[in-house]
Amino acid sequence: MEIPRHWRLKKQRYALQGEVCPHCEGKIFPPRDVCPHCGNEARTTFTFSGRGKVYSFTHVTEAPAGFEETAPYTVALVQLEEGPVVTAQLTDVDADEVEIGMPVEMVTRKIRSDGDERGIIIYGYKFRPVMQH
């Protein structure tokens, strides 16, 4: 696994830090060099609330290397309340309880291991159902 790459992505992984376009105010996650809404360069950071809804989901049975211990797991497209959609695993929920439109919130969890390669464990965002109070 590429250590500089993981270090570089820490603000996105731990804090859902994206961007707000200084030209059109479009919210952007993951960060991009060019705003997809207006075509100008986007560099102003913006931290997302971490709240959203499930746009779609799937239960992964055949996992790639690094995720064998986690399988089966649920991956979702989560539409953040600010607009962008993020791909993330769902957690703290039974597979048969997941449905499209379900409100979810971001939590930090272990994402994967790199096996015996360097022994690092990668943490990042997952989403769980919004707690009822």
Partner: peptide, 13 residues
């Protein structure tokens, strides 16, 4: 790689 594969997405997923 940074935002799909890294969270465990596969082509089938």
């Amino acid at each position: 790689a940074d935002y799909e594969a890294m969270v465990g997405l596969t082509l089938a997923a």
